[in-house]
Simulated assay, not measured.
Amino acid sequence: MSYTIQQLIEINQGCTALKDDLEPSYGYVPTKGAGMAFCILFGLSMLAHTFQFCWKRTWWCSVFAIGCLVELIGWAGRTWSSDCPYNSTAFMIQISTLIIGPTFFTAGIYILLGRFIQIFGRESSFLSPKQYLWIFCTCDIISLVVQAAGGGLASSESDKIGGDTATGTNIMVAGIVFQLISITIFVGCAGDFLRRITRLGYLSWASGSFMMLTGAMVLSVVCIYIRSIYRTVELAQGWSGYLITHESYFIGLDGVLMVVAVGIFNVFNPGWLLSSVRGAGLPVSRPTAEVKPVRY
């Protein structure tokens, strides 16, 4: 059956069940159970993070809650698409939000390393905490803006009959690649930080809280890194590529990894653990004048 332009517009704007002769923008119908499950998981993590940063007054940790909210909105869009697979608004919501959600998680990780440097002292890093904040959070903002712009452009084109999504897709890929580069540089800086505190003998007195937070940070970065590589390859293949048209990859390499990336900080929450890191004491050989009060 062939559809008129008016019929296609009505299908895109309304809630039409799957038709055998008309393929959804996803290449499949999103699984409703998966959408609801991730909405619940990100919603619970958001509520937990909100409670935790309000209780401990670690306001910078709000970036984790904001990221959860963005992810929640995106998965709500996919849940909507399970009932209305052709609805362009639902598709636009999920593609524009799920592409940028992890940016907020990386922002929290960047700030966390800055807090470590404040605790261990300036000699533990070649960059100051403020420099970390400005450099990497600026990179995050740039990545967020680029990805959001590309997602919005690609979504708007997908809503048009014969629309060209290539430009928007390429912009999104550029944003993700930029994020990958900034994460890679950050990993190098974090490795230098660990090398320095080990050489200075600080790692030997570091508390269990520091080790737990460091482990959480490493796990979160690995999850975000794998996800970013996946999304780069997925989008580079185009809107009809193999990865983007098979939901299992998206669930496993985006949804599951992002739940782990943000949920680990509910378990090992910086608001609860940073004070323990600071209270563990300093090496006797370290001049106490170098230590400045830090608000966690």
Rank of each mutant, 00 (worst) to 15 (best):
T4Q: 09
T4P: 06
I5Q: 14
L8D: 10
Q13Y: 02
G14R: 04
T16P: 09
K19Y: 00
D21L: 05
L22H: 06
E23Q: 15
V29H: 00
T31E: 00
G33S: 10
M36V: 15
A37E: 00
C39Q: 14
L41R: 01
M46W: 07
L47S: 07
A48V: 14
T50I: 07
F51R: 14
F51S: 06
F53D: 04
W55V: 03
W55C: 05
T58M: 13
W59V: 05
S62T: 09
F64V: 05
G67F: 05
V70K: 08
E71L: 07
L72W: 10
I73M: 14
W80V: 02
W80F: 12
S81C: 15
S88N: 11
T89R: 07
F91M: 07
M92K: 05
I93P: 05
G101M: 04
T103P: 01
F104A: 11
A107I: 09
G108I: 09
I109N: 14
I111V: 15
L113C: 07
G114P: 00
G114D: 08
F120Y: 15
R122K: 13
E123Q: 12
S124V: 03
S124W: 01
S124H: 07
S125F: 10
F126S: 14
F126G: 02
S128V: 08
P129S: 05
I135F: 12
C137A: 04
T138H: 06
D140R: 02
I141F: 14
I142N: 08
I142Y: 04
I142G: 09
L144T: 13
A148M: 11
A149F: 12
A149T: 13
G152V: 03
L153W: 12
A154E: 10
S155N: 05
S156C: 02
G162T: 06
T165I: 14
T165R: 12
A166H: 12
A166I: 03
T167R: 10
T167E: 11
G168H: 06
G168I: 03
V173W: 10
A174N: 08
F178M: 13
L180K: 04
S182A: 14
I183Y: 07
I185K: 05
C189F: 14
A190Y: 08
L194K: 04
R195E: 10
R195V: 01
L200Q: 14
Y202C: 06
L203H: 05
A206F: 01
G208P: 00
S209A: 15
M212C: 12
G215F: 03
G215D: 03
A216E: 03
V222H: 04
C223I: 01
C223L: 02
I226P: 10
S228F: 04
S228M: 09
R231W: 07
T232Q: 08
E234R: 05
L235V: 02
Q237D: 15
Q237N: 11
G238C: 06
I244F: 04
T245G: 08
T245Y: 01
H246D: 13
S248F: 00
Y249S: 11
F250Y: 13
I251H: 06
I251T: 11
G252D: 10
D254K: 08
G255S: 15
L257C: 03
V260K: 05
A261K: 09
V262M: 13
V267N: 07
N269A: 06
R278Q: 13
G279Q: 13
G279W: 01
G281R: 10
G281I: 02
L282S: 12
V284K: 08
R286D: 08
R286K: 12
P287L: 09
V291N: 09
V291H: 14
V294W: 00
R295M: 13
